[in-house]
Each structure stands twice: as C-alpha cells, then as structure tokens.
Write a protein that binds this DNA or RNA. Structure first.
Lengths: 234, 234
DNA sequence: CAAAATGATGAATTGTCTTCATTAAGATTG
DNA sequence: CAATCTTAATGAAGACAATTCATCATTTTG
C-alpha cells in the first residue's frame, strides 16, 4: 500500500534458543570462511535473524567468536579425564595427550585455526574463558610429567613449563602445513614420533653398550613389555 | 578561488624512492598497530603520499605487509652464515640457532607477531617469498643436526623435520606470552634450556647403572614391571 | 617548446561492523 | 478479554576502511 518496506514475520524465541541458533550459525560460517572472511550478514542469515539482532546477545564479532570457540572447547574437554584415566604409564599417558591434540587438529582444522590465529594472539586472550580452559587442558600434561618424575622415570631437573611448550609447540608446528590446507598427517604415527623424541632426546645413548650388553638387552625387553602393557589399557 | 579543492604541491619521486618511503612508513605503522588496526591512511600520511598512491606500487594491503616482512627478513639473514661459521660443535651451533630466533623475537616482537599470525597463516604463504627465506633460515638447523649425526654425536633414527619442528615450535610456544605483551624472557637462559632439553630428552639417564652389576639392574627392571602391575589393579 | 609518458591525486565506490530509534510479539494484569 | 507492559527483533543509518579510477600535473622526450 504505502512505500514502507514490509517487515517480515517476526518470531520471538527464548533468549537461550536464539543464542544457541546464532552460535550454531556462527560456528558453521566461521568454520567455512574463517574470521575475517565471514561477514556477519552470512551468520545472521543462517541463524534466521537480522544482523543487528546479533548485537543484542554478543558484544561484537570477536565476542561471538570467543563464545563459539569456548563452547566447542568445553564440549571437547568433557570426556577428557575419563579417557585419560584408562591409560597407564608415563609414556602412554604422554602419548595420549599429544595424540589427542593432533586428533583435534586433524578433525577440526578450521576451528583450530581460529583458536590459534585469531583468539590466542589477541591482547585480551588471557582474560578469555578459553584461556582458562586451555590451562586446564595442558595442566594434565604437567601432571603426567610430575608423576613421571616422582616415579623416578623422568629427569627431575627440567622445567615443567618448558617441557609442555616443547610438546605443544612441536605438535602445532608439525601441523601448520595441514592447517594451511597443504598435505596431511597421521595423528597416530606423529604422536608416536613426538612422544619418543620428547622422552629420549637427540643425544645418542651409550653407543658402546648397544646390542652387546646383557643387562641392556633385558632392560630393552622390559621396556617393550611396559609399552605393551600400557597400550592394552588404551 | 573557486570551490574546487586545492591540490597540494605534487612531488614526483623515483619509483624506488617512493617504494622505499612507503615500505618504511608501513613497517613503522604495522609495528605500532599490527595489521588489522593499521589503516592505510596512516601509512599514506607517514609516507607523504595519498592512499590511492600505495596501490600504484602494491597490489593491496596484504601485499604491502608481505613485502615489508620480506625486506626485514632479508636484512636479518644477511650476516647469518658469517656468525654461524664462527661457532663450533653441534651443541653450540644448535644453541646459536635457537638463541638467534629467541633474540629476534625479543627485539622485534611486533614484526614477529605479524610474521607468525598474519603471514604464516595465510593460504598463500607457501607462494610467498618469505616462505622461501624461512626455508633457508631453518635449513641451517637441519644441516647442523645432520652434521651431528654424521659425527656420531646424535641419534640417526630421528626425523630431521620433526627435530626442526620441536626446536622452533618449542621456541615460539615459549614466547607467546611475551608476544602478547605479558611478561618477559631471557634469550640466553631460554636458549640454554631448550638446547639442553632437545639434546638430552626427558628420560632419566642412569649413570649409576653403568657400573652396577647385572643382577641389580634386572631387579630394577622387574621392579618397574611390578609397579606397572600394581597400578593396573589399583 | 609541444607532445608523450607516467607519477600522483582525491573523489567515489564498495563492503562490513556497529548503533539505535522504532516496532510488535507475547506476557501480565485488572 | 481488552489494556498495558516488557523486551525481542527489526532495518535503516552511521562510521570507517580498502580499493578503484578518471583526471591532473610533472618530468622526459623528440
């Protein structure tokens, strides 16, 4: 009748439902396009709201991303302790932590990219909920190392934090090409290699003993047994 | 006199000079504000050109950043081999590589941030000149390891690339807080610690075992088995 | 010194995040 | 069951930054 634009039918949903809708839409759009290349208009459309509505529930685009990643992270960590509790032995537990990280990267490269590139690099990262979750996540690794030290298996003169940095740094460095969309990697194999390297280091072990010494040979056999016993519980 | 906007005096410089001016301006603005928060208008102003002029010499904002980082990277690598040639021994040379990396991060955190966050994560990174320079840069590390292996100092059963990932991954992971503007680190100390950890690994060395008799060593191995069995029942 | 070449301009375009006054669905009340 | 209230949702407008391009001005060339 008049020149006024027709307003489409307005559906009023509960706050919880709207937030869930927007976050689901945001996750899928972010996953497809990354952060910069994901226009809020796409998210709004997929969530069946108008752009402005997003600002009723989220401070800004970045806040939306933070909430999305936080949500994803929480669901990931949910069954973590349970899985870990079924694994025995320092080496196996350490390997699990590395493997779990690699597996996550392998399964959700896009969300990991967002986490690594956009979230973790922000000035406000340590005020973020994700920061706290991440601390929880890596705390387990520190605990495992500590247990290993207490059990006399690991050196007691290393910085725990440095070991953690080595594990996660190596793991992530190893997956960058994949995260850029170049090539692939096998989480199982890579986890084995990293765990082995972290534990043993580069330096050659007593070359004069190798293969000849009786005790060394028996110890190696026991090491294999240990690994076998641990693997069964995983 | 008329309402036409007065055009300021136009200075025509050589292409080389203009490009240099713009890149210098861009480097300083990027260093101060990062990538997203650096408006092209700031760069243009500091370079004494108008925004549009930048597009005569650079494809777009990202291209400008790539060129800026490339330029910086090249100047850094210039005296690299000379420095390295003065250092002998696998451990020292490896430590130098780690230290150099840490030192760079310590001195130019802002530019490193741009490199790590913006450049290296882009889809086009492996087509970038910086990618090639970076390969050159880390190639030395691989060579050092290889030399160590050939000299019989290092294990010959490790993946070179994995070792490289471990070194650089650990180094960078260690410096993230600093790169976010939180806290500080000492390049010398950190380099020592990382070199030591990479070389020796986590596993405990048992110098005391070397002279111990066979029976004792077997007993210790069995003790470990017993502990393992105990863990599973507990 | 006229003509050609090209460095440089700045206005216009485009795309996106963000704000906000207004509208109306649904709950509450008498 | 109408009047009123609350607040979810809208959509237009603002702000800002990257990018394009027709035009202008300076320098070089013949």
């Amino acid at each position: 009748m008049s020149n006024r634009t027709e307003r489409r039918q307005v559906f009023r949903l509960s706050k919880e439902r709207r937030v869930a809708d927007i976050m689901a839409a945001a996750r899928s759009v972010f996953r497809e396009k990354g952060y910069e290349d994901a226009p809020l208009s796409d998210i709004a459309e997929r969530a069946n709201v108008v752009e402005g509505s997003i600002y009723r529930y989220f401070e800004n685009k970045r806040d939306l991303l933070v909430k999305v990643i936080e949500d994803w992270y929480e669901s990931m960590l949910a069954d973590y302790d349970e899985q870990l509790s079924g694994i025995k032995g320092t080496r196996n537990r350490l390997r699990f932590m590395i493997w779990r990280h690699l597996k996550t990267i392998h399964e959700e490269p896009a969300l990991c990219n967002l986490m690594f590139q956009v979230l973790r690099t922000g000035r406000d990262y340590s005020q973020t909920g994700v920061y706290g979750l991440n601390r929880q996540y890596t705390r387990r690794t520190l605990d495992i190392i500590k247990e290993g030290i207490d059990a006399g298996e690991l050196r007691d003169d290393v910085s725990l934090r440095l070991v953690r940095d080595m594990i996660y740094g190596c793991t992530e460095h190893r997956t960058w090409a994949y995260l850029r969309g170049e090539g692939d990697f096998d989480p199982d194999q890579t986890a084995d290699a990293i765990a082995e390297l972290v534990l043993s280091g580069l330096r050659k072990r007593r070359p004069e003993d190798a293969g000849t010494d009786v005790a060394t040979r028996i110890e190696k056999a026991v090491e294999r047994l240990e690994r076998l016993a641990g693997d069964k519980t995983g």
